[in-house]
């Protein structure tokens, strides 16, 4: 009986603490929006963060995209070949990348590369009283530190996703056309006939924008909320990856069902 009560107590505690964290994260989101003026007035601040989140993620994005594209080309070819429609390989690669893999894999890589860096940086700034010092200098750390990173993430993510999709398609092209020898004309024309700008490409960009907001907020919140100790920061960094990944995949399902349904 007692253990049952204990169990419910634990469940209740974990639910309320989660809701509490969600609330604080939402509050942080609004604080960021309120304090965003400076990120655009002094765009140099945001520019620097785009460099750290976007440019520094370029290599991992391009390399992974190329491999993902090549694998799609190979797997797609062997499957489609059975049905005698190997020219459709272009459509398969392009649709898979533009609609799903581009935004999703980019967001997952972004969470691992840039998200963890943001969490660790903010967490350490908090642990070493840098945020406190800034407050004492009458500078709002949300406006000066958090908001530029937020906007940098939101701007960088769609750009990275577009690069991922394009490089992935080039990877698919290399395998399908150059290595296997599918007809080049069929590869591109089939793709163009079946990939719609508004419904496939723009929707992909919208997805990556949403992922950008989610990933960056999670990374910033985990850093801002981290206990100011070495252990606290390292745990927060781990949580950034786990939470971001789950949220990205969950949001992807929701967004996809809206986009296909509507």
């Amino acid at each position: 009986m007692k253990s049952l009560i204990n169990f419910f107590e634990k469940v209740g505690f974990s639910v309320t603490s989660r809701i509490h964290r969600l609330g604080t994260a939402t509050r942080l989101f609004f604080l960021i929006l309120l304090a965003s003026g400076e990120s655009f007035k002094r765009f140099q601040l945001t520019m620097k963060e785009i460099y750290f989140t976007g440019v520094m993620s370029l290599v991992i994005i391009i390399v992974s995209a190329f491999f993902v594209g090549m694998v799609l080309g190979l797997q797609g070819y062997y499957t489609l070949q059975k049905y005698g429609s190997s020219e459709a390989i272009g459509v398969l690669v392009a649709l898979a990348l533009v609609r799903e893999l581009g935004p999703v894999v980019t967001a997952l890589l972004f969470a691992g590369r840039a998200g963890t860096a943001i969490t660790a940086e903010i967490g350490l700034m908090k642990a070493t009283e840098q945020l406190s010092a800034m407050e004492m200098m009458a500078v709002n750390p949300v406006g000066r530190i958090i908001a530029p990173r937020f906007w940098a993430g939101v701007i960088a993510m769609p750009i990275l996703a577009a690069i991922f999709s394009m490089v992935g398609i080039l990877g698919g092209y290399v395998v399908a056309v150059i290595v296997i020898g599918v007809d080049e004309g069929a590869f591109w024309s089939q793709m163009q006939a079946n990939v719609d700008f508004r419904y496939d490409i723009v929707n992909g960009v919208i997805k990556s924008l949403v992922f950008g907001v989610a990933c960056t907020i999670i990374a910033l919140f985990e850093g801002y909320d981290a206990p100011p100790t070495a252990e606290g920061v390292s745990r927060a960094t781990t949580r950034t990856v786990v939470t971001s990944s789950l949220v990205i995949l969950g949001l992807d399902f929701i967004l996809t069902s809206f986009m296909i349904g509507g």
Binding site: A162, I163, M166, I169, Q192, A193, F197, I201
Partner: peptide, 13 residues
């Protein structure tokens, strides 16, 4: 460039 590539070469814009 990537986005334009997607729109022109891949999509039906």
């Amino acid at each position: 460039i990537s986005l334009l590539g997607l729109a022109m070469k891949v999509g039906n814009l």
